[in-house]
Simulated scan of single mutants.
Amino acid sequence: MFEIQKLRENSGLLNRAARWFHDKWGIDEAAYRESMEDCLKGASPVPQWYAALENGAIIGGLGVIENDFHNRKDLAPNVCAVYTEEAYRGKGIAGALLETVCRDMASLGVNTLYLLTDHNSFYERYGWEFFCMAQGDGEESPARLYRKITE
């Protein structure tokens, strides 16, 4: 059985989580660490980071940042870095993470979230709606941008 942890409530996860997200997405580990440190400061609702753990191992995670590297800077904040370890896919982990982030962000006063993805049906299963196409930084083609009202 897995559990979902909010980084702001478990600062001991910071280094492991920064390394884990770096390993999954190839973005500089220091950039994740900096965002996670900002999360721990608690000065504002964004950024936030979440990890799904089973027996202490990170098996999934996601974050909330202002902009997920796309040209629609007006559409913020963005859920980013959604990932579930391959061996754990199809077990409801991504859905639980998405539900947790929406509930948590609503409690922090954020009533709308956005998410940029190449998937074209996955997020609809969890109540996200296609909003528009957006151009990802450095990408050749636009990607789908989804919206979710959290309240």
Rank of each mutant, 00 (worst) to 15 (best):
L7D: 03
D68K: 04
H119I: 10
A52T: 07
I93M: 07
W20F: 13
K41D: 00
T112S: 13
H119R: 14
V64D: 04
P47S: 06
H22M: 12
N120C: 12
W25V: 05
E140L: 13
N111L: 11
S35R: 07
F131N: 05
S121V: 07
V46L: 03
F130E: 04
G92K: 09
E85A: 11
D38I: 00
L14R: 04
A106I: 07
S11L: 06
A134T: 02
R125E: 15
E37W: 00
L13G: 00
R16E: 15
V46K: 00
G60I: 06
P45K: 02
N67R: 10
D137K: 13
W20G: 02
V79W: 05
N120K: 11
A143S: 14
P45W: 02
V82R: 01
S121E: 13
D38Q: 09
M36Q: 08
A17T: 06
K73A: 14
L97R: 02
Q5V: 12
P77A: 11
G60A: 12
A57P: 05
R147K: 15
C39S: 10
G12R: 05
Q48P: 02
P142T: 03
I27M: 12
Y50C: 07
S107M: 11
I58Y: 03
Y123S: 01
D23Q: 15
G92E: 10
C39D: 09
R103V: 12
H70M: 09
R72E: 13
I58K: 02
C132E: 15
F2Q: 06
D68F: 03
R125Y: 15
G109R: 01
T112K: 11
K24P: 03
L40G: 00
E139G: 08
F122Y: 12
E9H: 10
G56Y: 01
R33P: 01
C39R: 00
L7C: 10
N10V: 08
S121C: 12
V110M: 03
Y146T: 07
Q48T: 04
G12H: 06
Y123F: 12
M36R: 03
K91I: 09
V82Y: 02
A52R: 00
R19A: 14
V46S: 01
K91T: 11
I4D: 05
T112D: 14
P45D: 06
V110A: 01
V110R: 00
D38Y: 01
I27C: 07
K24Q: 15
Y83N: 09
Y126E: 03
A143V: 09
K148S: 02
E129S: 14
E9Q: 10
N120Y: 12
W49Y: 14
E3F: 06
Y146W: 10
A31F: 12
S44C: 10
A43W: 12
Q135T: 03
C39T: 08
Y83C: 09
Q5D: 10
L115A: 02
F21I: 07
M105F: 08
E86P: 10
A143G: 13
N10E: 13
